[in-house]
Structure formats: C-alpha cells, structure tokens
C-alpha cells in the first residue's frame, strides 16, 4: 500500500482528471477607499468593540500612559524588552521580558504596554507582529489588560492596504477589541480568555 502522502496526491490528481481551468482572479475590489481622517475612523471603530481609545499628542504620550495605568490601578506591568524608555513611566513596577517571564508571572501582572505593527482603520484592528515594542505573543495574551500605542503613520485604511504592509512569516496577531464571544444566543459579550480590557492610545 502506498504511503498516505502519495496516495492523497494520487487521489487529488485523479479527481482533477477533467483538468478544470484555473480562473483568472478578478481583483477589481477596492484596495483603498476614501475613509476620511484615518485616526478618527480607527478610534471610532475600536470604540465600537467597546475598547477605550484616546488620541494624544506625541509629547503627551508618557503622561497618557501613566494616566491610563493609574486609571486601571495597574501597578505591576509587563514590558517587551525594547519598550521605549519614556513609555516606562514612574510609579509602576515594570516587569521586563528578559529573561522570558514564566507564564505564571505574566498571569500575576496587572497589564502590558506595547506598540503595534499596523492598524486598520476601517475594521478597528491592531496588528502585532512581535516586532518593535511588542515582544512575543504571550505578553499581550496572558495579562488581563492591554494598553497599545498606535502611531498615526502605522494606520492603514483598508484590509488590503494593511496586509501589504505585513510580513506573513512573522507571528501575527490581529486584535479587534477585547476578547468576545457570541456563543450564547449569538449575542456578543466582551471579555473571555484574551485580555478583557483593551485600551488604545493613538499618537500624532
């Protein structure tokens, strides 16, 4: 008997004995759209998921981070190793992910602060790619509160525009609001296993 691989491939080829033509993919859908001012739209769309969004000027960022963390009562906060120095505001115990924090430690922290790779205005999405100021995936998953900083130049309008900016071989996480479920009567409830609170600071 042939091995599974050759047998499955043989079946596929036999099934395609009628040589169906590969269609031309029509790409006439919108790559970009006039969405107005992107930071405003991003904020509106994220808020729609019941996450808090604050727009801040670049020179007010540190103050805003401090205010958000204080507002949440977050005292022990996870930081990716390369979180910009000014973001590590005082009166907070920062737990740097160096050496990598055990999961139990992450679970014991009050929250995490990161940047992002890209944001999608139209869908209210933040994309993390484990790059600059983001750290590995577990950091933004286990703590119950995620404060994410988005620079205006990181905001793409549409999904196609955002995907074009991303490298798919990096581990990617698309985040659209706090964790949620519609599993009870198809009614949406926020807050399940992922961070139950998401706050976004749009800088620019």
């Amino acid at each position: 008997m042939a091995d599974a691989r050759s047998e499955v491939l043989r079946r596929v080829r036999a099934a395609l004995a009628d040589r169906p033509a590969a269609p031309e993919v029509p790409r006439d859908y919108d790559r970009t759209r006039d969405l107005g001012e992107l930071p405003a739209l991003l904020a509106e769309r994220i808020e729609h998921y019941r996450a808090a969004v604050h727009r801040v000027a670049a020179d007010g960022l540190a103050e805003a981070i401090a205010a958000r963390l204080a507002g949440r009562g977050a005292r022990v906060v996870v930081a990716p190793t390369d979180l910009p120095e000014p973001w590590r505001v005082p009166r907070v115990t920062w737990r740097l992910d160096e050496p990598p924090l055990p999961v139990a430690d992450l679970d014991a922290c009050d929250g995490v602060v990161t940047g992002c790779a890209v944001a999608i205005a139209e869908t209210g999405t933040i994309v993390l790619d484990a790059g600059e100021a983001q750290g590995r995936r577990a950091l933004t998953l286990v703590p119950d509160y995620h404060l994410c900083v988005v620079r205006e130049d990181q905001i793409a309008g549409t999904v196609p525009e955002a995907l074009a900016r991303l490298d798919p071989v990096r581990p990617l996480t698309f985040v659209s609001g706090p964790s949620a479920t519609s599993d009870i009567e198809l009614d949406r409830v926020e807050g399940v296993h992922g961070p139950r609170a998401l706050e976004v600071l749009v800088v620019g």
Binding site: R45, G124, L172, T173, F174, V175, S176, G177
Partner: peptide, 16 residues
C-alpha cells in the same frame, strides 16, 4: 467588521 482575534503563524518561531 473584524473578529476579535486572528492568529497567523509560520512553522516555528524560536522563543515565541
């Protein structure tokens, strides 16, 4: 407009 989480991974990423 978008589901809360979409994860994309490629093979194994060391340390992550």
């Amino acid at each position: 407009r978008m589901n809360p989480y979409t994860s994309v991974w490629t093979g194994v990423t060391p340390g992550d």
